[in-house]
């Protein structure tokens, strides 16, 4: 298996309603995939299925080697208990916890790794602070640190720039560019603009998936791709617009 992750004919929904239908998608090593689409289009749901937080109705997700156990997840900061009394350092340390080691104490090595990552993300001075005292941008970096401490081979970020000012955004993009040397990255966003220079694949998701392969990122395609989310969000008529740049792939 050449790809890190291969998703085939994935379908999932809440209660009776399908949110995702027949999704097929592959993630190669060191890929940078941008997953865009309107609100409620199933972006976060797809992420949760890949991460094993949700179980699909049908379809398969296959992982290369031990990839399945080495996924990094940076959720939207609104999705966890922000009032939990925990320091930045301890929060990052929880990233080391896995299904097979959660009964043991944290090792010295894990603590050193957490410290090093905090240093790298310019958070070391904040390590003793409570997570409740952080700004949105700082908290986002803590969540990234928590994901990185487990040394993932594939990193998933859900709307990472939402709470960030322009400077933090630039820092994040620099970091992602560096991380891409070592891991595949998938970013879920409703606003692809900040990632214009970074991504290699773009996938438009609105219940079904509209995916662009490699080598299509000429200016004409870029223009179309850029048109896609803007139009979706503006008018809510994704299908007609997306059909224009579907390029022979299954709608």
């Amino acid at each position: 298996m050449e790809n890190l992750i291969e998703i085939e004919h994935l379908t999932y929904g809440y209660q009776e309603r399908a949110v995702l239908e027949d999704i097929s998608l592959a993630i190669a090593p060191r890929d940078f995939t941008l997953l865009i689409g309107p609100n409620g289009g199933g972006k976060t749901t797809l992420l949760k299925l890949i991460l094993g937080i949700l179980t699909p109705w049908s379809g398969t997700i296959r992982f290369q080697g031990e990839t399945g156990g080495r996924l990094g997840y940076v959720p939207q900061s609104a999705r966890f208990n922000r009032t939990f009394p925990i320091s930045v350092f301890d929060m990052v340390l929880t990233g080391c916890i896995r299904g097979d080691n959660y009964l043991s104490r944290h090792t010295r090595e894990e603590e050193e790794k957490s410290g090093a990552i905090l240093e790298k993300l310019a958070l070391y001075g904040k390590r003793k602070d409570n997570i409740t005292d952080l700004s949105g941008g700082q908290l986002q970096r803590v969540l990234i640190a928590r994901a990185l401490v487990s040394e993932p081979v594939s990193l998933f970020l859900d709307e990472p720039t939402t709470a960030m000012d322009i400077t933090s955004q630039t820092d994040l993009l620099d970091l992602l560019a560096e991380l891409q040397e070592r891991m595949s990255i998938m970013v879920v966003t409703h606003d692809p603009t900040p990632y214009a220079q970074s991504y290699r694949h773009i996938a438009c998701l609105n219940r079904r998936l509209y995916f662009h392969g490699r080598g299509e990122l000429d200016s004409a395609t870029l223009e179309k791709v850029y048109g896609c989310p803007v139009e979706i969000l503006g008018h809510g008529i994704p299908h007609t617009l997306l059909a224009a740049h579907e390029e022979g792939k299954r709608p």
Binding site: K48, L51, G52, I53, G69, L71, Y73, P75, R79, F80, N81, F84, I86, M91, T94, I97, R98, G99, D100, Y102, L103, H106, R146, S150
Partner: peptide
């Protein structure tokens, strides 16, 4: 015994699921 696991689900249940707890 289960301290780390209980903290993990109290802090961020979805993350705990993603980490296969």
């Amino acid at each position: 015994i289960y301290y780390n696991g209980f903290v993990a689900i109290a802090l961020d249940e979805e993350y705990a699921r993603a980490r296969r707890l």
